[in-house]
Design a protein around this nucleic acid. Structure first.
Lengths: 204, 204
DNA sequence: TCCAACTATGTCAAGCTCGACATAGCCTGC
DNA sequence: GCAGGCTATGTCGAGCTTGACATAGTTGGA
């Protein structure tokens, strides 16, 4: 049985032959949106896939720069991948430290929490922007969403998932900021009525 | 340096003294919404926290059932927790097999993919329902969202995050289903106009 | 009566992931 | 000239996580 990472590598190689370095760039956190991994994990996995016969490679010696190993998926690799695609996925927990910090917020000063949230919002806005740009590039090329039979459909579907996820994350961060702001202000909140405060906190 | 799991345990113990079993029930996948972990990871971590002095416990021997160890956070534990809450969180990648499968979808029959999505939707609808019920219970108790100073605020914030995440996941699953359905139908699609098909696929 | 499921705690091997270390040539700016 | 950054590949130890195995009393149904 191959690891999930192996299948992610096979999926990338099925879309286009490429080097381990190319793969690691696409999977590199925090911008990777298919499967995040570091090169330290990718190269050994790639070597294993070659050994098992699911992938082969060709050495390329460009004039400039170090030699590259361009990997391609084999017929066996394609068969293995399509078998795997049809079986139910294993859900992985999305354990997020920020959620734990929000849970334990009462133990901290509200000020540091707001600082922390601002940084998080900035980080996720950056990632969201990059993802949206990529999705927009595909949409302008295909005049909307690509057809499921298109080579670009897979990337587009993965992008939509990542974009939705980031937007939702930002919505939550901003909701949390809004909750904390009235409590933090030392002077300004005096002018605000309790009714207004309560309305701002009310769930939709 | 403690692990993220340790802080999640401390956060739970800060809200209420409880046994390792209680903690493992709250963290048990797939319903855990603060931090997911199995008991096999929780008990050793709890023992370590006791050894480090961040947690202590009391043996309780109920008439019925096996003896329980009710753990409580110490003053040192609270200090450690509030120090940690103020530092920036480490982002963990949300690697989802289903996204990889969607990426590699062209390699599979559309039929099995739709089957698979239906199962996923059912699973996530179930989790979403359970989370919404919990959130609703808190909202009815507090007539809306709890105040940030409330003991229930942390749980409510974590719940909102999990609920948003599930809803977003379901939106994506249904979008993907919609994309695949027209392509899968062998006879029914003949009556549908290409314009309609294209409009259904268009990005918002 | 026996089997299954739940409470309650614990251990452990195997596998996955991260971050650091290592090498080496090329290019750009100071 | 040289420091820093990029391309490009690889190794490795430490730590995190999973899933199975282990124990043992209680409750409820077939």
């Amino acid at each position: 049985m191959l690891s999930s990472l192996s299948y992610a590598i096979l999926a990338l190689l099925a879309s286009k032959p490429q080097s381990g370095y190319d793969i690691s760039r696409q999977m590199k956190p925090p911008l990777g949106f298919l499967w995040q991994a570091r090169h330290g994990q990718i190269y050994p996995e790639l070597a294993r896939l070659v050994q098992e016969g699911y992938v082969d490679f060709e050495r390329l010696d460009p004039r400039a720069g170090p030699p590259r190993r361009v990997h391609a998926i084999t017929a066996e690799g394609r068969a293995e991948l399509s078998k795997w695609v049809a079986i139910p996925p294993q859900p992985r927990p999305m354990n997020d430290e920020l959620v734990v910090k929000a849970f334990a917020l009462r133990k901290a000063k509200a000020g540091s929490a707001v600082e922390l949230l601002k940084d998080q919002v900035k980080l996720h806005e950056h990632r969201l922007g990059a993802l949206e740009q990529r999705a927009a590039a595909i949409e302008s090329r295909d005049s909307g969403a690509p057809d499921p039979s298109s080579v670009r459909f897979g990337e587009y579907a993965a992008l939509r998932r990542a974009i939705g996820s980031e937007r939702d994350y930002l919505v939550w961060c901003r909701w949390l900021q809004q909750q904390l702001e009235p409590a933090r202000s030392t002077g300004r909140s005096k002018g605000r009525s309790p009714a207004k405060r309560s309305a701002a906190r009310r769930a939709p």
